[in-house]
Nucleic acid binder design. Sequence first.
DNA 1: GACGGATTTGACAATCGTTCCCGGCAGTAG
DNA 2: CTACTGCCGGGAACGATTGTCAAATCCGTC
Lengths: 133, 133
Amino acid sequence: MSTTSESPQRNTRQRRAVAAIMADLEGFASAQQIHDILKQRGESVGLSTVYRNLQALADADLLDALRNDDGETLYRRCSSGHHHHLVCRVCGRTVEVEGPTVERWADAVAEDHGFRDVEHTLEIFGTCGDCAS
Amino acid sequence: MSTTSESPQRNTRQRRAVAAIMADLEGFASAQQIHDILKQRGESVGLSTVYRNLQALADADLLDALRNDDGETLYRRCSSGHHHHLVCRVCGRTVEVEGPTVERWADAVAEDHGFRDVEHTLEIFGTCGDCAS
DNA sequence: GACGGATTTGACAATCGTTCCCGGCAGTAG
DNA sequence: CTACTGCCGGGAACGATTGTCAAATCCGTC
């Protein structure tokens, strides 16, 4: 335990490849999609390795992870601060949104009920203008 | 479609058993936990049947379903209107909360970005007063 | 530049929750 | 009561993810 800053991480081709994909990607993607993209680019990386590196990146708060209704875990590059997502259920386009009001409301509600160390998850789904037509 | 009152559903022992469990249960439970409880009570019901009935109840809005971080689907008896949950991450105690402000905010944000047919999910997690001590 | 120890990789098997399949059973209408 | 139709159950199938372990790779050091 002690220091959390420990990062005996090595700088491997595979780790770079995964990070590079995520840097490019606009929307959410599953581990398997990322594995496919890597294969297409010729940067073949083992599936296990993709999973491992995505988890590592998510643990390091460099990626956001969420589960879709099918039970798949989706990953996406994310700005660091606290925010939420507005996701098009058709094309997957994602908009980051902030809502200080909501944050305060959530904290207030939780405290009213005597809860501590409050966190929350909020996702908004809809059909974006382009897809609605 | 037409009338939603259609119920070509049969009134089986198994269906009653599952519904009865859910009526008793206070917190969230997974399909497999419910299957186990049924077995303990001697009301043995096939696992497939438990899954089917839970889904049916959730489709009928008699239960709320959500996925935990392990990818399991958890079910819980729920009041019918739209609301959210405040869940203790230690003991699982759940409080239903409403937030008209949040609903409006989510809809407004989505519309600002041209999204239609907006839905959202919101869960608040914390440690309840009892568990904090 | 080569060496050595530790970390990482990758192919495959294993796991876990959930769904599918299908023969047999049981509500329900007539 | 009889027939009809949906439901049940259990085991196989499935898909995402994780575990395993020898071989490859990285990196500080000589």
